[in-house]
Design a protein around this nucleic acid. Structure first.
Length: 616
RNA sequence: CGGAGAGUAGCGCAGCUUGGUCAGCGCGCAUGGUUCGGGACCAUGAGGUCGGCGGUUCAAAUCCGCCCUCUCCGACCA
């Protein structure tokens, strides 16, 4: 057997979880049998963990600042990050939790490609729908390709080829994979990025009953995953949006700076994404319709100005809002105190392409911007939509379609008609709950997970069918389930930090213990600290040894910044007394224990057990 | 894509209004020495085409134009 020589690495060249032979020649075949797993610790002096003393100017969110300062990530471009070793460890801890819970509900992990043929996306109609978020390019043969922003198409194509019989169902496939979406606006560090790691799962069922039975299992698994990561999430009813399908929930972490908005009832617990939330619209006491009269309102182009000029509350006005959908114009009439929810409007109109209309487009249908009136508007080019707040309202002030004039006492449907009456209003903080009459609160949050009952949207368009028990070919019933792993990591930091740095929940901490030698230049303390680290690592703990030649102050500050649950301090002061000082990151509690390996080990374990209770 | 802000040494910033000792400060980094339990001290030193291109001028980090990048708000978001 040939001997390959290479330079010897200085001790220790063993990293956690790896088995690296440190001899200078490859071992013989037999010697592999003697290798046993080496649970090694990590020496900071030989690790890559750069920390920053100063706050980065670019970052706003606490999680983003901490990830940069504590050496978890580094930016490459807008919304594109490198995970450094410390951050990658945390990410892998989270992935492990996700894997365990997915396997627990019968999921089988696979790995799908990141590059897809565009043709596949054309078949489901999402090639154009996904629009500019979908990165497209050509391979050398000129074939159109895309970077996968999600994998419904690919997994359904796989199912089409492989699933023929009801006997193969149900099936849950999942992966942890990189996605790329060219977001128009990346923001907030890892909260909203363009390249990201996602756990995406897809279930296949023979009928909707089976999907309905399985869906709650995933729902519960998601709650478990987030709880194990130390996060209390709020499941909210969600809009299934461009995914299609019949039911959907988002799992939100309540956070002031979150990228999403949801509504929570303080009475019955009703929770919904703001896109789909409904609220009671109190109607004013019924009053007799009055005759329409014209009134001069010069310079009053906003509802507030008109209401003020005429001395009426905004809820006694009708607001006109215009959207362009394709070649048509949507003329939305809504009570003046309410705002239009574009997602609801799009759903009511059965369209996905809504854009605010320009003044020219508004004028083209005969309306006067600022004084637009639904009265007398008709024609093929315009669809009048009345919010359901309009029919019960009496004697509203509306535009007169004449520069500088409004109409008093406008009533629906006496004075104008609508093609459609629907709830298209945005829920406001303080609105009353449609279910229990309680008060709705609008909250910002970070969307950590999203689950959908897809139904047959993809199986139909990709012709993924199976033979049912009666021998009939039917499209697969599907569900899909996503978790943003990097965003979950960011959320952990949002929820678990203090002014000094990160405070990891034990379950996802990159290391369990940080062993800090205060005087690593002295051979004996360093050797002793190494033996402590080795001992703890052999016991199965993830250990980082701070053997850098830094002042004690720097080490203590870095320890707080990194947020490793337990800090073991080895310095001359305690060593003289035959002790080691242990400090818990969560509350700063300190105690000195006898400097024997076993005592240190059991003391550390005690502290870590307390962590599990607190976060589990 | 709209609105706002910012690009000067690895990080944080000053200098720009009023063009000319204006290539600076703090931290970090390197070397030597002193320190050594909560971000120490002294000395010496390395490091920047001032985001890019063009223009004005005797002279541009500084004035003008175009472009690029980054951040925040909004639009958008399976």
């Amino acid at each position: 057997m040939p001997t390959v020589t290479h330079s010897c690495a200085p001790f220790p060249y063993r990293r956690s979880g790896l088995t690296i032979q440190t001899s200078c020649s490859l071992p013989s075949r037999d010697s592999f049998a003697n290798l046993r797993p080496i649970m090694a610790y990590v020496r900071w002096s030989r690790y890559f963990l750069p920390t920053w003393k100063e706050e980065p100017a670019e970052a706003d969110l606490p999680s983003h600042r901490l990830m940069l300062r504590a050496g978890l990530i580094r930016p490459l471009a807008a919304g594109i990050y490198t995970y450094l070793p410390f951050g990658w460890r945390a990410l892998r801890k989270i992935e492990t939790i996700v894997r365990e819970e997915m396997e627990a509900i019968g999921g089988a992990e696979l790995h799908m490609p990141i590059v897809h043929p565009a043709e596949l996306w054309a078949k489901t109609g999402r090639l154009e729908m996904a629009g500019s978020q979908l990165v497209r390019f050509q391979d050398r043969a000129g074939r159109e390709m895309v970077l996968g922003p999600t994998h419904e198409e690919v997994v359904t194509d796989l199912a089409r080829r492989e699933i023929q019989s009801w006997r193969q169902l149900p099936l849950m496939l999942y992966q942890i994979q990189t996605k790329f979406r060219d977001e128009p606006r990346a923001r907030g560090g890892l909260v909203r990025v363009r390249e990201f790691t996602m756990k995406d799962g897809y279930s296949f069922h023979e009928d909707t009953d089976d999907l309905d039975r399985y869906y709650p299992e995933v729902y519960r698994a998601y709650l478990t995953i987030f709880r194990r990561c130390g996060l209390a999430t709020v499941p909210v009813e969600a809009d299934s949006g461009m995914m299609g399908g019949s039911g959907s929930h988002e799992f939100m972490l309540s956070n002031e700076q979150g990228e999403d908005t949801f509504v929570l009832c303080d009475g019955c617990g009703y929770a919904a994404n703001r896109e789909g939330a409904t609220a009671v619209k109190d109607a004013d006491p019924d009053e007799a319709p009055q005759a329409v009269t014209e009134v001069a309102t010069p310079g009053c182009q906003t509802i507030e100005a008109v209401a003020h000029a005429l001395g009426v509350p905004t809820r006694k006005t009708a607001k006109a809002v215009f959207y362009r959908m394709g070649k048509k114009l949507a003329f939305v009439v809504i009570r003046g105190d309410l705002a239009v929810n574009e997602a609801k409007l799009a759903r009511a109109l059965g369209t996905t392409e809504l854009a605010p209309a320009t003044e020219e487009e508004i004028a083209a249908v005969g309306a006067v911007p600022g004084y637009a009136s639904p009265i007398g508007i008709s024609g093929d080019g315009v669809v009048v939509v009345a919010d359901d707040s309009i029919p019960p309202a009496r004697n509203l002030v509306a535009g007169a379609n004449k520069e500088g004039f409004h109409l008093r006492n406008v009533n629906f449907p006496r004075d104008f008609q609508a093609s459609l009456v629907a709830d298209v209003a945005l829920v406001r903080d303080g609105d009353r709950c449609a279910r229990c009459g309680g008060t709705l609160r609008v909250q910002r949050g970070v969307e950590l997970g999203h689950i959908f009952k897809l139904g047959t949207k993809y199986s139909q368009s990709l012709d993924a069918t199976f033979l049912d028990r009666e021998g009939r070919a039917r499209p697969l019933i599907m569900g899909c389930y996503g978790i943003g792993i990097g965003r979950l990591l960011a959320a952990v930091l949002e929820a678990h930090h203090d002014e000094d740095g990160i405070v990891w929940p034990g379950s996802v901490a990159p290391f369990h213990v940080l062993v800090a030698v205060l005087n690593p230049k002295e051979p004996e303390p360093l050797a002793y600290a190494a033996s402590v680290a080795e001992h703890l690592a052999q016991a199965g703990l993830d250990v980082l040894l701070d053997d850098r030649e830094r002042t004690a102050g720097e080490k203590f500050h870095d320890a707080k910044l990194l947020g490793i649950p337990v800090l073991a301090v080895i310095g001359p002061r305690s060593l003289r007394k035959g002790e080691v000082d242990l400090e818990r990151r969560r509350d700063g509690a300190r105690n000195s224990v006898d400097a024997s390996l076993d005592v240190i080990h059991s003391s550390v374990q005690d502290l870590l057990r307390a962590e599990v209770v607190e976060t589990g």
